[in-house]
């Protein structure tokens, strides 16, 4: 199985063959991700209520909303992580370039390769070196080509703006880095899989302001490489880094639009009250 996953190019072709471009879905084909009527549960508790959202390619989209409104849950529905939680359930479709990631025929490993994730707290693998952390996804999925791995490690660390700081100590344990560096290491680890979409769940909430601003800068630069969705409860951050903003409340998507519009001229009263700090 691992060897199969080694040939992303072949797989991509296979996946592309199964694309369906229906007339009424042309609009959707311009989106990198299309979330269609997604409902999510933890046991009997519904955490997501009929979410519909289209994510534009090479953009940064921010999910904002008060704590517990379902931002993390929605994010985890986008790379099939939600179903890993015991008792968790999901209905609806998530289309990646028109392909439903919940389709039974799809290799879930390919989905994980195409949609990367960065977590709230930096979580480098504690027993692995910096180098091995970045290479972990490739090596453990069966990639053997050392030169390829070496090239990708360097490219990913550069992509995560960490290369200059660590290039002379790639053999040091990943956990020996500072918090901000660890988070960038985790971004490099995700980038190594050559994802098309990068999901980030409050990636700076465990970091100091300086480290946070580095990550924000990085996010802006990464836009050219991947489509980014970032969960944040920091509204200034959403305003700074994102092109589009989705405001969620109690498991529902209340308003979604260009970040400028959401912050300057929200259509919904609820959004306006949240943006202006009246609750949250």
């Amino acid at each position: 199985m691992a060897v199969e996953n080694l040939a992303p190019v072949e797989k991509k072709e296979q996946i592309e063959e199964s694309f369906v471009y229906l007339d009424d879905e042309i609009e959707k084909s311009h989106s990198k991700l299309v979330v269609k009527d997604v409902n999510g549960w933890f046991g009997s508790k519904q955490a997501l209520k009929s979410i519909n959202i289209n994510i534009k390619p090479n953009s940064v989209t921010a999910f904002i909303g008060p704590s517990g409104c379902g931002k993390t849950t929605l994010l985890r529905c986008l790379n099939r992580m939600h179903e890993m939680t015991t008792g968790a359930k999901i209905t609806g479709e998530v289309l990646l370039d028109g392909l439903n990631i919940y389709d039974k025929a799809i290799n879930p490993v390919i989905i994980k390769r195409r949609i990367g994730m960065v977590f709230q707290k930096p979580n480098p693998f504690p027993t692995m070196s910096i180098q091995d952390n970045v290479a972990a996804g490739l090596k453990l999925n069966g990639v053997r080509d050392r030169n390829l791995i070496q090239d990708i490690v360097e490219d990913s660390l550069k992509g995560a703006a960490l290369w200059n700081e660590v290039k002379d100590e790639l053999d040091k344990p990943g956990v020996s880095l500072s918090g901000g560096q660890q988070q960038r290491l985790c971004i490099a680890r995700a980038l190594a899989m050559q994802p098309e979409v990068l999901l980030m769940d409050e990636p700076t909430s465990a970091l100091d302001p300086l480290a946070s601003s580095k990550i924000e800068e990085l996010i802006s630069n990464l836009r050219e490489r991947v489509t980014i969705i970032i969960v944040t409860h920091n509204m200034q951050q959403a305003a700074r880094v994102s092109d589009f903003t989705a405001f969620m409340y109690l498991g529902e998507l209340i308003e979604y639009g260009a970040t400028n519009q959401i912050f300057k001229n929200p259509k919904k009263d609820l959004t306006e009250r949240y943006i202006s700090g009246k609750f949250g």
């Binding site: 199985m1 691992a2 996953n5 790379n79 992580m81 890993m84 879930p108 490993v109 390919i110 989905i111 994980k112 390769r113 990367g116 994730m117 977590f119 707290k121 979580n123 693998f125 504690p126 027993t127 972990a136 996804g137 453990l140 999925n141 985790c186 680890r189 995700a190 899989m193």
Partner: peptide
């Protein structure tokens, strides 16, 4: 072993066996 390490493994598309042996057990 913190669950976030297992999740990091899943997000990289690793199999449960790989995660258990190479990440959890190794930690």
């Amino acid at each position: 072993v913190p669950n976030s390490l297992r999740e990091a493994g899943y997000s990289l598309g690793l199999s449960k066996t790989k995660i258990t042996l190479n990440i959890v057990l190794s930690t």
